[in-house]
Design a protein around this nucleic acid. Structure first.
Lengths: 137, 137
DNA sequence: TATTGTTATACTCTATAACTATA
DNA sequence: TATAGTTATAGAGTATAACAATA
């Protein structure tokens, strides 16, 4: 039933827009996401970060420039391949990441608390399926 | 558990990005969404459309201008209040809307087909809850 | 004076194409 | 010649502030 797809597409688009409006952070959602990727992947190349974030390298370059200005990350030359760059999160970046994630998710967390237990369980189960869809093909 | 919120926020943001990349339409997702709102709300003011789409009036004005150029909608003066404008979908706009919705949701529909029946049921149940969250507060 | 819609302006996020340096 | 990253440029989407017309 295509209407299932329609309903889900609509709901995801709307909720995404709603969440963006709730930002209570100095970092934009995208900056936060990239900072998280840098933390997760360890010293990683911009190319690897772009692949993980499912965006093109120029988009990552721009965000890395912003994060470098704040001192949350640093770029190091790759000793083995002069074309590559390794990106690392700083100690301050790590601390910031934790604080900002809490703030970013605060609104959604509040909303989830208002749901019935059943509905919360439903969304908890749905989240990994949605994530898998996002990573498809 | 805030990590529930985090997992869900991440999944929604990623899937939204993924869906946007799959556009196979002449209309952008936002244009399509506004066109759908005009169809749903019938002759409606830009203000009402903005409220329904959860965006500010200037954003709607811009999109209405684009849709007017294509002939999918038309603006009429409100006979009772000269400050207001009524926006209507045209016959061609209606036809286009149906075709474009199918195209827009085609990718997600394919992905849903690949899931197990249980997972599809899960997402079918989750969609209205997600939509409700998006409309909260 | 308040409301509706529009215009002006700016910022975020993303992409493609062109360029630089290295392999 | 191919690859990694960056720079240049453009387009989509959104917001706030200022403005015009009408109530």
């Amino acid at each position: 039933m295509p209407s299932d797809a329609h309903a889900l597409a609509l709901a995801v688009a709307r909720l995404n827009r709603r969440m963006r409006r709730e930002r209570r952070s100095e970092l934009t959602p995208t900056q936060l996401s990239v900072l998280g990727a840098v933390a997760l992947l360890g010293p990683a190349t911009p190319g690897a970060i772009a692949a993980h974030e499912q965006v093109k390298p120029p988009s990552v370059t721009r965000i890395l420039n912003q994060l470098t200005e704040t001192g949350y990350i640093s770029r190091l030359p790759d000793p083995e391949d002069g074309r590559q760059v390794l990106v690392e999160i700083s100690a301050g970046g790590h601390l910031w990441l934790q604080q900002e994630r809490k703030r970013r998710d605060a609104w959604l967390h509040e909303q989830l608390q208002k749901l019935h237990g059943e509905e919360r369980d439903l969304l908890r189960a749905a989240a990994p399926v949605l994530k898998r869809l996002a990573e498809a093909e």
